[in-house]
Nucleic acid binder design. Structure first.
Lengths: 105, 105
DNA sequence: TGGATATTTAGACAACAATCGAATTGTATT
DNA sequence: AATACAATTCGATTGTTGTCTAAATATCCA
């Protein structure tokens, strides 16, 4: 787990900075608690977003790359779940900033 | 205070999604608690980031536009401070997502 | 093995965004 | 009013990214 410096934080933000990608992320988060996180996210969500599969694939890669989600192949399909640790890290920064911490960078 | 839908959240994220702009934001946050928030942020931070004034100006506008900061002109100079409400809103979403809320969109 | 379904890669294109230099506007001071 | 300093606007350029189609790869099942 890398330290959350400005560069890495910017990368995480960037991954969430696009409406479609954010919706994708939130969609994954939604279906995340259920033990049955075992459907084909990609194709399913693709429809909901009226985007093509390659585009979704591209967005997924960015989310993975920012450590926001992890993916796993199950049979033909791909399942994804959010990485709560990353989320917690970001939360931490926001709280810190909001409460006026001075030693960030 | 607008509702924090996907679109608006994406916009906020986008404002923080660039390394320089994030650094700018964090810099503003840093000098924020002090009652003496009364220096020329822009030119000052511009030097720290090795960017030109127009570029900083551009970034500031995006931060303002995302409701992340508010600016105020004091004499020749510009002072800025973070909008904690927006920050709190985002925090709220992250906490919500992390704890598995299902009713976001 | 062959067909069906799902994801990924590759390549192309259009839209967007970051940056700069030059010129402009605003404000204070003399 | 003139000068000096700070910020902004404008226009151009360059690099990045979201999206698509077409093709490739992977996995399951009959």
């Amino acid at each position: 787990m890398t330290t959350l410096n400005t560069k890495r934080l910017a990368k995480i933000m960037k991954a969430l900075a696009h409406e479609h990608r954010l919706a994708l992320y939130l969609g994954i988060a939604q279906n995340n608690d259920s033990e049955v996180d075992a459907e084909c996210r990609v194709r399913e969500v693709a429809k909901a977003l009226t985007l093509t599969a390659p585009t979704i694939c591209h967005h997924l890669k960015e989310l993975v790359n920012a450590d926001l989600i992890v993916t796993e192949k199950r049979g033909k399909c791909l399942v994804a779940r959010v990485n709560r640790d990353t989320l917690a890290e970001v939360e931490q920064v926001l709280v810190t900033v909001r409460s006026g911490w001075r030693h960030f960078f």
